[in-house]
């Protein structure tokens, strides 16, 4: 059975009631893991509180951080400082140089582009090649697709169609996330799969983008963040005190 994942649920972190309602709704809709973006300086207590709400609802939780750096230098600094504190790292790419840096950095899990400004969606063949080598994924948020209408939605759909084709050609996994800020923007995974067929993503590929691909990121990072991890393929099996 598939484990569906929503890596970008965006309740207001300061409103515990809303957080709980949305996590509960995610569980009802059939998700088994949710990622909630937190500010980089989020305290351990905040993460524990979210973890507690999720475990009460019997849903897995991953802490995620979204960087939106203005320069590649700022991105590197953020990654150096905060990478090990979060299970998933996403970069909102607002310039070509930042996109290039994010796509080639192995510490970046997800590349996210602004949905409202089509000219700032810099995902092309060059970025796709870099992302493919660095195991980064292209993240597509569904909330803007639901809230936009008319020509903005037409442009977004057309752009997404192009990006999905590029990603497919370069073997860059695509991750579909809700980006929902309230309950009315949340949909079940099969509804999202039907929606993404609008930008030429076949149904099996869409279901993978909602389950296996995001799950692979989380599992890979959990392994890397575990104290037993040494290097890819090498981990501590047993510890012994040598005197």
């Amino acid at each position: 059975m598939r484990r569906f994942v929503d890596l970008r649920l965006r309740p207001s972190i300061n409103d515990p009631d809303q957080v709980e309602r949305m996590i509960r709704k995610s569980s009802e809709l059939g998700y088994r893991l949710v990622g909630i973006p937190l500010p980089p300086n989020a305290t351990r207590d905040k993460v524990d509180q979210l973890q507690r709400i999720c475990s009460d609802t019997k849903i897995d939780f991953v802490a995620r951080v979204d960087f939106a750096p203005k320069t590649p230098g700022e991105l590197l600094q953020d990654l150096r400082r905060f990478r090990r504190r979060f299970g998933v790292v996403s970069v909102t790419c607002i310039s070509k140089r930042v996109t290039r840096q994010a796509a080639k950095d192995r510490r970046v899990d997800l590349l996210l582009f602004p949905a409202t400004d089509i000219r700032k969606r810099f995902f092309d063949h060059a970025e796709a090649e870099l992302a493919s080598k660095a195991f980064s994924c292209l993240e597509i948020e569904m909330a803007p697709l639901l809230s936009l209408s008319g020509s903005s939605r037409i442009h977004l759909l057309s752009r997404l169609r192009r990006e999905v084709a590029i990603a497919k050609k370069s073997n860059v996994p695509v991750v579909i996330s809700s980006g929902a800020t309230n309950q009315y923007l949340m949909r079940n995974p099969h509804d999202y799969a039907a929606l993404v067929t609008l930008f030429n993503m076949p149904l099996p590929y869409a279901l993978r983008a909602l389950s296996e691909d995001p799950l692979a990121i989380v599992e890979r990072n959990r392994e890397k963040l575990s104290p037993d991890y040494v290097a890819p393929g090498i981990r501590v099996v047993r510890r012994k005190n040598c005197v």
Binding site: L29, L145, L146, S147, N182, Q183, Y184, L185, M186, R187, N188, H190, D191, Y192, A194, L195, T197, L198, L203
Partner: peptide, 23 residues
């Protein structure tokens, strides 16, 4: 079916009030 499913998922309001429809 897929067309209706996608359309239903794209509904965000009914009678100018926020709403969502799940299949």
């Amino acid at each position: 079916v897929d067309m209706i499913r996608a359309s239903v998922a794209s509904i965000t309001e009914m009678n100018e009030k926020p709403a969502a429809i799940h299949v």
